[in-house]
């Protein structure tokens, strides 16, 4: 994953769900969480910049590298739930 094809995407929490599904994590075939579903009406779909197939490298600056699926999912869930921010910053990579 080169820096050339990474993007920082800000997802504003404008819906009561984030509306994505991820698979993978450390110790699996997919070592970094990959977006497998984007649900209509969710904040991610409204943001329009996240796409199925992208890999999530960081959430609000927290790296997901080396995180197992459960821990990566907890970090994303916390980021959406916290009232400290009205958005989530995802650093994503498009795999060529």
């Amino acid at each position: 994953i080169s820096a050339l094809n990474t993007a920082l995407v800000r997802v504003v929490k404008n819906s009561n769900t984030l509306g994505i599904a991820i698979e993978g994590g450390a110790n699996t075939r997919q070592p970094l969480p990959r977006i497998v579903t984007i649900q209509k009406g969710g904040s991610a779909h409204n943001c329009g910049q996240l796409k199925v197939g992208q890999v999530i490298l960081e959430v609000n600056g927290i790296s997901l590298r080396g995180q197992e699926h459960e821990e990566a999912a907890r970090i994303i869930a916390e980021a959406f739930k916290t009232k400290e921010k009205d958005h989530i910053d995802f650093l994503v990579a498009e795999l060529g």
């Binding site: 599904a21 991820i22 698979e23 110790n27 699996t28 075939r29 969710g42 994303i76 959406f80």
Partner: peptide, 13 residues
């Protein structure tokens, strides 16, 4: 450690 068996674990948010 060998890959665990949660290969296809998917979490929805």
């Amino acid at each position: 450690s060998p890959p665990k068996d949660y290969e296809d674990e998917v979490t929805f948010f």
